[in-house]
Design a protein around this nucleic acid. Sequence first.
DNA 1: CTTTTCTTGCTTGTATGCAAGATTTACATA
DNA 2: TATGTAAATCTTGCATACAAGCAAGAAAAG
Lengths: 244, 244
Amino acid sequence: MQDLHTEQNRQANIEETIVSGVLSARIRPGTRLSENQLATLFGVSRTLVREAMMRLETRGIVQVSPRRGWFVVEPSAEEAMTVYAARRVIESGLLRSMRGLTDDGRKVLDAHLDEEKAAMAAGDRRRLTCLMGDFHIRIAELHGNPILVEIMRDLTARTILISMLYQSEFHAAQSHRGHCRIFEAMAEGDFVRAAELSIEHLDEVETGLDLTARADPLSDLRTSLSLPADTASKTSRRSGARKT
Amino acid sequence: MQDLHTEQNRQANIEETIVSGVLSARIRPGTRLSENQLATLFGVSRTLVREAMMRLETRGIVQVSPRRGWFVVEPSAEEAMTVYAARRVIESGLLRSMRGLTDDGRKVLDAHLDEEKAAMAAGDRRRLTCLMGDFHIRIAELHGNPILVEIMRDLTARTILISMLYQSEFHAAQSHRGHCRIFEAMAEGDFVRAAELSIEHLDEVETGLDLTARADPLSDLRTSLSLPADTASKTSRRSGARKT
DNA sequence: CTTTTCTTGCTTGTATGCAAGATTTACATA
DNA sequence: TATGTAAATCTTGCATACAAGCAAGAAAAG
């Protein structure tokens, strides 16, 4: 079955493999994605890998550094804030435009929240990261608009990369409560409130990030040496990330 | 200056040339985009053209029909409704999240509305189509979130293709009034109202489309002959194009 | 005259080859 | 030991070659 899919559309396969790797928090930001390695890994030529990379680049998930290589994006602090702002806009708009919750939808979300709880109990951080993102994709799916689902999936992928970069400690319980509250409002049919809650929730998560520290990985050293902030040190910003 | 840009990044050049061709309503939906023709036109090999096409495909602007060719997308009636729904969600969310309008922003929108008026007076339909889309991109730009600007641009491109397919008569005056109302609300700082107005506006525009007629290009003939609607005639839809 | 089959040209799909920049390694030298 | 430099080895960028599918028209069969 998977062979079929592999045979049918190999470049889409590469693309989705990488995306799901990011969505499941198994691929770290800054990971080098060598065209040759991927080519041999998937049993194709560099051409198909390259095409997949092109697509992923327009989706904001990978980036090419000319003649140096492809890397999973490492969103800057500024980009991180942009992603969260976009999510607030889209998710609140999404919830606000919803008119009702089907029984099926109710079940889906309920099951999802149970999974979150289970992952929390198990202390499975990676799985939690994944689930926390999935919740929002589920909502987009309930809304039923495939364009918005796609957008939300890509934004969620970036969000996960952001959390891997900037999330010092994981306030999973807080996030989970946020999701529960949103769900309750939805279940009551109060989508205006759900929208407001989603904004609050995203604000909380964003505030929980350490957006000043990791924005400049030298800041620790810099502050220890009490040097001024150096705006021209962009070149060294990648040192620690690659060579998987 | 353009030579410089051409030399620097030729594939992005191809990509943006096509997008701006769509945004300015100079490229019709269903237009064939031959890799060879584009390659000679831009003086590059098929490789770069292909990479540009890959990017445009993930942006929802072109589509490949296997072994047949690349085409500018022809959104179905269903896809058209999806695009408008997505726009309602995003634009209303966008406006609702705005906190104020700078003097600069006020000027930009004011100038834009003047342009709309001028184009209406001149009866320049193509320019109007272009401006009507641009208005919404301007708002996203005012919001300042580059991610949302990108999303809005791609959705606007699709919207223009939709209007070329389904807009029998152009209610330009109505759209213009809608834009004016949104602007007034924004100028008054009433972004909640602006958001509501944007939803109304998009609803109006969508309602103005002929989403049933052109969904089946044979319907004219069919109704003239008073034949029943044929659900199995999907194959003959758009003689020259795809097979998805 | 209609239908079928075949052929030819055009399209994309994929792999490969080569050039050129970037990085690292090795090494000579102070 | 530290340092500067050159060579070797990576990387992507882009063009090209060839395979294979689709479509339309010609030729042949009915």
